[in-house]
Amino acid sequence: MGCFSSTSRKQFPGHEDPILLASKTFFSVSEVEALFELFKSISKSVIDDGLINKEEFQLALFKNRKKENLFANRIFDLFDVKHKGVIDFSDFVSSLNVFHPNAPLEDKINFAFKLYDLDGTGYIEREEVKQMLIALLCESEMKLADETIEAILDKTFIEADADGDGKIDKTEWLNFVTRNPSLMKIMTLTYLRDITTTFPSFVFHSEVDEIAT
């Protein structure tokens, strides 16, 4: 088992000990191992190097590698915790941890704020929201007149931008999502509740004694 284990980890940079990863997240050891099965299948879809690159991530999301998408890029960048241009297994588990049903709402709200703060200025600015809105309209092949887009932005900022400075800060964001809890639905993945059922093959590749799971 020792030889198998070390070879496996060499092929997968960032494949920390499942027990350690489980101790730092809301996942059990079995769930971390099931996530590894998912990670393996995504990370070998284009280049079999044990890492997820942007193309592989988009392929997994859209089942189509040609699709360029602002939101998928933002999610990828946030999952790329070490800013290496690729997602390793440890990044994958720690990022998905925020989407766990048991993760604190505060973490989900902070992650969503970072997601929408495209330029990382610490504020969600009107131009950024406009850019995301236009990206969404392109993606869904929906056409809206410029005045309609501006009206949606006006309405959004009247609701969210309490001090009226044209940008949403973290406190305003917290208040806004508290009044609009449906916005946080995308931050919880119910799939993570029964991940071991979705990827039962982890049992055959487990490196951990049953007692530790």
Binding site: L38, I42, A60, L61, F62, K63, N69, L70, F71, A72, N73, R74, I75, L96, F99, L115, Y116, V129, M132, L133, A135, L136, E139, S140, M142, L144, T148, A151, I152, L153, K155, T156, E159, A160, F176, N180, S182, L183, K185, I186, L189, T190, Y191, I195, T198
Partner: peptide
């Protein structure tokens, strides 16, 4: 719902790019 009755974030959150559930669909 009509886009006009929604705020920008309600619309944005419908993006397929934010639907991480599709990672789990084989």
């Amino acid at each position: 719902a009509s886009p006009l009755t929604m705020n920008a974030f309600q619309l944005i959150s419908t993006s397929q790019g934010l639907n991480l559930g599709s990672l789990f669909e084989k």
